[in-house]
C-alpha cells in the first residue's frame, strides 16, 4: 500500500530523513514513532507530495508517486496533518462541504455521522474553534470520503480522553472496513494499543520495523526479582556478554533487561535466593526509550 525506498530529504543543510525505507501492507495499522525532529512529519509530507524528495522512491497503491498521478490517487487517501489550519472565516460546514466538493461522491451522510460522533458543531466559525475542535475538523475531512488509505500525523494531540477513545474506535472501524492506516505518534500507549506494525525512526533513519508482537517478544525481556530476606544478588561477571543490561536495585527488588537465551537466564535465576520473580515483555515505551537511550549514551 505504501512502499518507500531509500528516501532522502534535506532542508538545505538540515537533515529531514536519510536513506529511509519502509513498507506498509494493505489492511495494516502502521505506527510510526520517534521524538520531535526525528523525521516523522517530513516522511508523511513527502509521501503526500507536499515536499519534493531529494532522492528515493515512493509508491502508493503500487503506483510511483508524482504530482499528476498523486492527484488521481488522492480520492483514495485521507490526510490529517499534525497542526490543523483552515480558512478562518468559513463555518465548519462550509469548509467540509468545500473539501467534499473535490470528490466525485456524496460525502454528506458520512460527514454528518462523523460530526455527530465527535460532537462537532457545523455552524461554528473556524477561527472561533479551540485547538481540539480544529483537530476534530481535521479528522472529519480526512475520513468523510471513506478513503482506502489514511495518513495521520499525530492524530490525537489536542483531543480529550473521551474523544481519543472515540477516535480509536473510529480507526478500528476503518480498519475493519479494509482501510490501511499509517500514523505517527508520540503517544506510545496508543501505538501499542492500535498498531499491527511499528517503525521507529531516529535521526531521519528507520532503526527498527517489526510487527508489534514480534518487537515486544524479540527485543529483550524485562526481568524483575524479589530477593529472599538477607540474600544478595550475585551478578554474573560476564553479565553484559550474556545479554544482561540496565541493572537497577532498590532494597530487595532487582530489575534488568535480558537479551539472551532462556537457558542462561534460568541458570542466572537458579543461583539466586529468590522470593519471587517475573519475566515480562516490555511496554513499547520502554523499547522506545531503549533505542533512544542507546543513542544518547553513545
Amino acid at each position: 500500500m505504501i512502499e518507500i525506498n531509500n528516501l532522502r530529504k534535506y532542508y538545505g543543510k538540515n537533515r529531514g530523513v536519510e536513506d529511509l525505507s519502509l513498507s506498509v501492507t494493505a489492511g495494516q495499522i502502521y505506527g510510526f514513532v520517534g521524538p520531535n525532529g526525528a523525521g516523522k512529519s517530513t516522511t508523511i509530507r513527502t509521501i503526500l507530495g507536499l515536499l519534493i524528495p531529494d532522492s528515493g522512491s515512493i509508491k502508493l497503491f503500487d503506483t510511483s508517486v508524482n504530482d499528476h498521478n498523486l492527484a488521481q490517487l488522492k480520492p483514495r487517501i485521507g490526510y490529517l496533518p499534525s497542526e490543523n489550519y483552515y480558512y478562518d472565516r468559513l463555518t465548519v460546514g462550509d469548509l467540509l462541504n468545500y473539501g467534499a466538493s473535490y470528490y466525485k461522491k456524496d460525502c454528506r451522510k458520512r460527514m454528518d455521522n462523523l460530526c455527530e460522533l465527535l460532537s462537532l458543531d457545523k455552524k461554528r466559525v473556524i477561527e472561533d474553534l479551540s485547538f481540539g475542535n480544529k483537530k476534530k475538523v481535521g479528522i472529519v475531512q480526512a475520513l468523510m470520503h471513506e478513503p482506502d488509505l489514511l495518513i495521520l500525523d499525530e492524530p490525537t494531540v489536542g483531543l480529550d480522553p473521551l474523544m481519543q477513545n472515540r477516535f480509536y474506535d473510529l480507526l478500528r472501524e476503518e480498519k475493519a472496513r479494509g482501510c490501511t492506516i499509517f500514523f505517527s505518534s508520540h503517544i506510545l500507549s496508543e501505538v501499542q494499543r492500535l498498531c499491527d506494525r511499528v517503525g521507529i525512526i531516529k535521526e531521519g533513519r528507520l532503526i527498527e520495523e517489526k510487527d508489534i508482537r514480534e518487537l515486544r517478544a524479540t527485543t529483550y525481556k524485562l526481568v524483575t526479582m524479589t530477593l529472599a530476606e538477607g540474600a544478595t544478588f550475585e551478578k554474573p561477571e560476564n553479565g553484559q556478554a550474556i545479554g544482561m543490561a540496565e541493572f537497577s536495585q532498590e532494597d530487595r527488588r532487582v530489575r534488568f533487561h535480558y537479551h539472551g537465551t532462556a537457558d542462561k537466564l534460568t541458570e542466572i535465576l537458579s543461583k539466586q535466593a529468590l522470593l519471587d520473580f517475573s519475566v515480562e515483555e516490555p511496554e513499547l515505551e520502554e523499547i522506545f526509550m531503549h533505542y533512544y537511550g542507546e543513542g544518547e549514551s553513545k
Binding site: G49, L50, D67, A71, Q72, K74, Y85, Y86, Y87, Y103
Partner: peptide, 17 residues
C-alpha cells in the same frame, strides 16, 4: 503562509491546477 496548503493539496488536485 496560512498553512492551509495541507488541506488544499490533500484534495485530488495537482500543483498546476
Amino acid at each position: 503562509s496560512e498553512h492551509t496548503i495541507d488541506f488544499l493539496y490533500g484534495r485530488p488536485v495537482t500543483r498546476l491546477y
